[in-house]
Design a protein around this nucleic acid. Structure first.
Lengths: 117, 117
DNA sequence: TTGACATATTCCCATATAGGAATATCTTAT
DNA sequence: ATAAGATATTCCTATATGGGAATATGTCAA
């Protein structure tokens, strides 16, 4: 088997930095394709292709406006990424260390409790 | 150009679900390869290959222990993912809507203030 | 030393890019 | 109708998979 398609899920779609940039721009508000082309400095066809991937995973919605197509962010498909990565926050954030210590302490007391019965 | 290598960064490494599973297992503590093989139900060579990718992006560390190699999680490379996706939390979390309303309200009052001077 | 155990690497293959270039499609203005 | 503008699609190519199978490497045990 080959690598999963970029359109498989948000994880794959967002692995491409250019697509993250596009989402970052759209986070500021709805925009037509040419705006993105100008802001990104990327050829128009590539932008359209990236937008297609983002559309297929539901990260952007489109609306027709005359000859322009207005793209709008839809962050919801990012939630699984957020949920997954969130549980790892403690591994790099020292702020959790203190909490971990407390929890370990409680756990130890609990075990002592049990052994004393 | 082709798609970026899976070893380019954590975004790409973690786009593969099996690698996320491996990290999830290692989050419970250090483990030798064969443990992961058994727990994942995946052929050993594939596990070793996934571990190599994870090692190359720094998501796991290895330690030799006799004929086993103990793998340990290192979550730090996930921080950029967390940081990036965190800013989108408000787009799906309604809990932020109330906050947004408050901020809009404050902003409006501020603007009114300015115009009254 | 030899064999068993644990892990890593290599080879093969079907598949999917991402970007560049060219072109097609759709809409509005004249 | 025709041209111009905005966007999407197609074709091409180099590259990188992920899994399966076979094999190599490294280490301990008898």
């Amino acid at each position: 088997m080959a690598r999963a398609a970029t359109t498989t899920d948000a994880f794959n779609a967002v692995a491409e930095p250019r697509r993250r940039e596009i989402l970052d721009l759209l986070a500021r508000g709805e925009r037509p394709v040419n705006d993105l082309v100008a802001l990104l400095g990327v050829a128009q066809p590539q932008v359209s292709k990236h937008l297609r991937v983002l559309r297929e995973v539901g990260l952007v919605d489109v609306r027709d406006n005359g000859r322009q197509r207005m793209y709008r962010l839809n962050g919801e498909p990012l939630k699984p990424i957020h949920d997954w990565v969130k549980s790892y926050e403690r591994t790099w954030n020292e702020r959790f260390d203190a909490l971990d210590d407390v929890l370990d302490e409680l756990k130890r007391e609990d075990e002592d409790d049990g052994e004393n019965r």
